[in-house]
Simulated scan of single mutants.
Amino acid sequence: MKRIVMLAAACVIAVPAFAQNVATVNGKAIPQKSLDQFVKLLVSQGATDSPQLREQVKQEMINRQIFVQAAESSGIAKQADVQTEIELARQGILVRALMADYLAKNPVSDAKVTAEYEKIKKEQAGKMEYKVRHILVEDEKTANDLLAQIKSNKSKFDDLAKKNSKDPGSAEKGGDLGWAPPTNYVQPFAQAVTQLKKGQLVDKPVQTQFGWHIIMVDDTRPVEFPPLDQVRPQLEEMLRQQTLADYQKQLRDKAKIQ
C-alpha cells in the first residue's frame, strides 16, 4: 500500500513537468513555450490564435523535429553548404530583429510626419500639371506630315491619333494622356510639355526613345497637393526607411573595417 501511495505521489509531481511539453519525438521534448512563441509569431503576421491553429503548429513542430533529427543523423547538417546556408539564415534573422528593435525604440513621430509633409508641400508649391495629347509615330517624315495637317485644323488631332498613333494606351482616346505632372514623362517630351501653354501645339515633332511625338497641351492647372491623412501611410514608411538607413550608416561608420 505504501508503495502505491509513493507511486501516486511521484506521478503527481511528474505531471507539471510533462505538461510543459506538447510532445516528445524520439526522446527530444518540444516545450509548450516553443509552441506558444511559434503561435505568437503567426498571430503577429495576421493569424488568429485558436485550438485549430495550435494543433496545426504542434503537428508542424513534430514534423520539423522528425526531419531535423533525420538530417542530423545522416550528417547533412555538417555539410559545408548547409552550414553556410544556416549561418546566412541566422544573420538574416538577427539583422531583421535588430532593425525591428531599433524602429520600436525610435518610432516615427507625428511631428516628423507633419514636418516632412510641409516640406514636400512647399517644394511642390507653384508646380503645374498638364492635360496632354500626343501622336506617336516611328519616323520624322510621318510626324511632320501629320503635324502639318493638325496645324491647318486642330480638330483633326483625335482622328489622326486614332488612325496613326503607335501608343496603344492613348491612341483609341484620340491621343489623350490625361492629367499629369511633367515628371511623369521622359525627356525631351517633358521639356516640350512645360514650354506649351493651354491649347498650344508643338512647332515640330519631338523625338524620344519611343519614336516621334506630336504633342498638344489641352489644359494646365496647379498641382493639387493631397491632404496629410491621405498620404500619411506613405510618409511614415518613407521616414521609417530613412531612419533605418541612417542607423545602418551610423553602425557602418563606427565599425573598424580592415
Rank of each mutant, 00 (worst) to 15 (best):
W179T: 07
I13G: 12
V137R: 04
A9I: 15
N164F: 08
I135R: 04
K2R: 13
Q250M: 09
F189W: 02
Q124V: 09
P233I: 08
S50L: 04
Q56K: 10
P16V: 10
Q195C: 07
K204M: 08
F189M: 11
Q37G: 10
T114P: 06
V186K: 12
E123M: 10
P107I: 00
V217Y: 00
A77E: 05
Y117M: 04
I215W: 00
A125L: 08
A125E: 14
A80P: 11
A71H: 05
A17Y: 14
Q37A: 13
E118V: 07
Y117C: 06
V15S: 14
D218L: 10
Q83D: 08
V12R: 06
L244W: 04
Q79S: 10
K151L: 04
Q91N: 14
P107K: 02
D203T: 14
K154A: 14
P227M: 04
D167L: 01
Q248N: 09
D176T: 08
K121M: 03
K151S: 07
K249V: 07
L94S: 15
I215D: 05
K131I: 01
I150W: 01
V202Q: 02
V231S: 05
A19C: 12
V12S: 07
P222S: 02
K162I: 11
V22N: 02
A97P: 02
E116T: 08
A143G: 09
A255Y: 02
L146V: 02
V206P: 03
A255F: 05
E60K: 13
D110S: 10
A29G: 07
R64I: 10
K151W: 06
Q124H: 11
L42Q: 13
L42C: 06
D203Q: 12
L147F: 02
D167R: 03
I4D: 10
S44I: 00
A29P: 02
G27P: 03
